[in-house]
């Protein structure tokens, strides 16, 4: 069943169109930067973007930082919101459930397909970012670069930390995927499920900027998204990275349990 779901996800042209659209923005930003040489002022704009003019190898991180606040979560919300509600809307859900595999297994298969989409999307954005960065900007093959703390990082260290950052961004999207999947079991409309997940994210991002909401800030799903920057400090600041991973784990655990509680007993009519 898992293989079927994976083939279904990656066999659809719209999955690849989504990934292509996601890559368009970082590529456009890179081309504009190359043409104008106008990097954002220090401390402004997405993390690492001001540094890419001097080191193109940092562009995968800048590309992820560009799509992380909005584009990536929208894509994940749309795909995860479609997981169950899309089948219901198309009228295929009851046929899927007619198979002996069971609802819990179907839910797990849907979840793994969404996870695979998240991982593939993040890796593709980083890979395209690397290609664009090394083609358009200067790369430093020997001295790989400087950490945020002003120490030198070897190319191996920079590569290792970039891989960790890509993994961290992928995990950060799991919470969005879990919200989308949960809402997808509540409604027959994929659009409603995706918008529900996005509403949660917009609320979380808004509350994070409010001082009055600071007591609940550590529990907001978007609170630790930018913590991948901490992997490039020296020594690495693990505090927010570990909290970010744990928080996503909690959201995924709770929402999947809720999705299972709802879906396993739901009356499926379409």
């Amino acid at each position: 069943m898992i293989g079927v779901e994976l083939r279904k996800t990656f066999g659809r042209p719209r999955t690849w169109v989504t990934i292509a659209v996601l890559n368009a923005l970082p590529v456009l930003v890179a081309v504009l930067l190359r043409l104008t040489d106008l990097a954002p002022r220090p401390g402004e704009g997405p993390p690492f973007l001001s540094a890419v003019l001097t080191n193109g190898q940092l562009y995968p991180l800048a590309a992820l930082a560009i799509v992380l606040p909005l584009f990536l979560p929208i894509a994940v919300a749309v795909v995860s919101g479609d997981a169950v509600a899309g089948e219901a809307q198309a009228g295929t859900l009851r046929y899927l459930l007619a198979r002996p595999a069971g609802r819990t297994r179907l839910l797990v298969a849907k979840l793994l397909a969404v996870l695979a989409f998240v991982v593939v999307t993040v890796v593709v954005v980083a890979a395209v970012g690397y290609l664009v960065g090394t083609l358009l900007f200067d790369a430093r093959p020997v001295a790989a670069g400087t950490s945020v703390s002003g120490t030198s990082l070897t190319p191996e260290q920079l590569a290792g930390r970039t891989v960790m950052a890509i993994g961290y961004v992928a995990v950060s999207m799991l919470g969005v995927a879990a919200f989308g999947l949960f809402f997808s079991t509540l409604t027959d409309s994929p659009l409603a499920a995706a918008l529900g997940a996005l509403a949660v994210l917009v609320t979380s991002s808004l509350l994070f900027t409010l001082d009055a909401a600071s007591p609940i800030a550590p529990y907001l799903p978007t609170r630790y998204w930018l913590a991948f920057v901490d992997l490039f400090r020296d020594p690495v600041l693990w505090r927010d990275v570990v909290r970010g991973l744990a928080l996503q784990g909690v959201y995924v655990g709770v929402l999947l349990t809720a999705a299972w509680a709802n879906f396993a007993t739901k009356d499926v009519t379409s």
Binding site: G43, P47, V148, S149, G150, L226, D230, R233, L237
Partner: peptide, 22 residues
């Protein structure tokens, strides 16, 4: 430590270094 950078003050016997990443 800020979301996208940092400013480090390193104090030694002869004075201090201030590093601004941005």
């Amino acid at each position: 430590v800020s979301a996208a950078g940092e400013t480090g003050v390193h104090v030694d016997a002869g004075g201090s270094w201030t590093w601004e990443y941005e």
